[in-house]
Nucleic acid binder design. Structure first.
Lengths: 339, 339
DNA sequence: TTTATTTATGCAAACGTTGGCACAAGTGAT
DNA sequence: ATCACTTGTGCCAACGTTTGCATAAATAAA
């Protein structure tokens, strides 16, 4: 970037050795005050900026963390990124963002990229398509700190930060039941995601506790997590054409929630009279929807912060860490008119 | 990252020189087929990954681009990032994202960071607070390609990608006028942003063409671009307490639009009966709001793509580029029930 | 056979920074 | 005046990769 001035340039200009200049700039080791000042002054005057690449090459530390998530333009992940950034910025780490767009292939390619950049650690939320975790295991085994968030896996032993998905779903279903809904459908993401399983678990638990045995016809999976509008459309179509169509629907992700609301609107279905609705969403103002939407809100910003704190802790730990933590953040049910 | 295998390791293991291995891997220069195969095989078997840092240090090219924008969790910017990523990924560039949160100080610090990482180029959308551009000029003069998008400046001569802000605002105001509204207020961002000026220009033009002279009382600036909820609250308060309160309000950014809608809701103001509303917004489903919101939608994804294409073109150009382009993308007015 | 040419490989320096080791000059104790 | 430290600096190798130049071996032309 530009033809920046280097330590060598300063050394030559001032008739010193490289090391003296380096040490003067770092303030380390024994350097006379006079030299230090002379160097600093020259450096400032010529806009000296250390070459971080060279430093990283030397130190094998890049002070950067790689983030692997599925989609940036998504309320939930955007807030998570904000949380990540808030910690990383203060601790002077760089954030290198990559999105998998739910694709396994792309996840691998991004991981390779980040690896080549020698990131000091990885913050990962798994892609929907991912079932084979050997690429993560490979890095993890070779000592790269990884923290999983949101979409996690039990197959790799490291820190994880998740939301209380089961609890959030449970609360939402409990609420729907209390309001008299009995035929509650669930539109969710791919069944191999941890969040899908946990949310389904909360859904089932609430139903069973109320003496209702879950009806498999009421559970619709979107393999692409709602990335494709038609998969949500199709799920709703199927639900509505059942002999006993549901009287409420619980949606499992931001994208699915918004899509569902939008599709129900287009079909002229009155909410909550014909069909009640509640869903996971991190949209900033769900009260503005027609009708105001009952949501399970996740502390996304907090999740980003927590994951990043844990990761940096791992990176900077002197001894290898063996005891890992699974941090579970609370999910908040906010009841509005849609249910 | 990990204890990765290097070219040196391969060379030693195979009894070759570093250069032979390097050339075999790159497929460059004259290398016998036998050697090439032997090297590739060994490299694959041991998961060799080139150290991108070392390559960058040598080549003075990092194949990464730095992005400087104000806020990631914002529909508009999130979509822009998606556009940036779509091009960068295909051209094999890394995206290093930083957010200024509208702060000048933070913008500078991020810029320093990116500079130290030797990014090959910069994609910039200015922070609200920024008026002094000398830090950008410094990099630009030293040869770092920069492309500005959305919030641009005339003071630095380089490629720019913007939306037809004046045209978008003009169309919205024209529409409000056609629907009989005459007292149209405008809640907007800080006056020193290019987008603010341009949107105001379209607003004024439409009014003047219809024989209405703009009323300064109807124009309210939010210095922090709506980052602080109270600034929007205050703007609305002031508008409503005017002797002749407006009959319509036109909002100039995603955040301000959502905040305004939310505040009007809380105050129980009926839209559009008491106050009509239209505003810039990139929310995915404004038809879901109460009432469905008339919006000026920006092609954010396209903007990200266009800016990135121009930047990479600059980076990879052999001759220094002197003729710069200002690309203006159309803004789309989508009329809904709020107006 | 000798000389010229091609082909494949090796050597070493460079990118910018850091840090171990060495060493000269200065200080103080004996 | 000698010895033992301390202080401030310089030298050089290393991080992993690339590349111009040199060179050995193989081939072709004389």
């Amino acid at each position: 970037m530009g033809d920046a001035i280097t330590i060598k340039d300063i050394a030559k200009a001032l008739g010193m050795s490289y090391s003296t200049v380096s040490r003067a700039l770092k303030g380390s080791y024994k350097i006379s005050e006079a030299t230090r000042l002379k160097v600093k002054e020259y450096a400032d005057a010529h806009h000296y900026r250390p070459n971080l690449l060279a430093q990283s090459l030397k130190s094998k530390k890049s002070r950067s963390i790689g983030v692997l998530l599925c989609s940036i333009p998504n309320n939930f992940f955007a807030e998570v990124i904000n949380g990540i950034d808030s910690i990383a910025y203060n601790k002077d780490y760089h954030v290198i963002l990559t999105q998998s767009l739910e694709s396994y292939e792309r996840e691998i390619k991004n991981l390779e990229h980040l690896a080549g950049r020698l990131v000091d650690g990885l913050l990962v939320s798994l892609a929907t398509e991912t079932t084979d975790l050997s690429h993560f295991r490979q890095w993890h085994d070779s000592g790269v700190p990884i923290v999983f968030f949101d979409r996690v896996t039990d197959l790799i032993n490291t820190h994880k930060v998740v939301v209380d998905n089961a609890g959030g779903a449970y609360k939402a279903i409990q609420h729907l039941l209390e309001n008299g809904y009995r035929k509650i459908a669930h539109i969710t993401s791919s069944p191999n995601l941890s969040i899908t399983q946990e949310r389904l678990e909360g859904y089932n638990k609430a139903l069973l506790e109320n003496g209702i045995s879950p009806n498999p016809d009421y559970i619709r999976y979107c393999q692409h997590g709602g990335m494709l509008p038609e998969e949500v459309e199709q799920a709703i179509e199927q639900l509505l054409s059942l002999p006993h169509p549901p009287d409420a629907v619980f949606t499992a992700s931001d994208r699915i929630t918004i899509s569902t609301l939008s599709i129900l609107h287009k079909r002229g279905i009155r909410i909550p009279q014909q069909l009640a609705m509640a869903g996971f969403s991190n949209f900033s103002a769900p009260e503005l929807f027609t009708p105001p939407l009952t949501t399970v809100r996740q502390p996304a910003f907090e999740m980003g912060r927590a994951a990043t704190e844990l990761l940096i802790q791992l990176i900077e730990s002197k001894q290898p860490v063996t005891a890992f933590e699974k941090k579970v953040l609370p999910a908040e049910l906010i009841i509005r008119a849609s249910s």
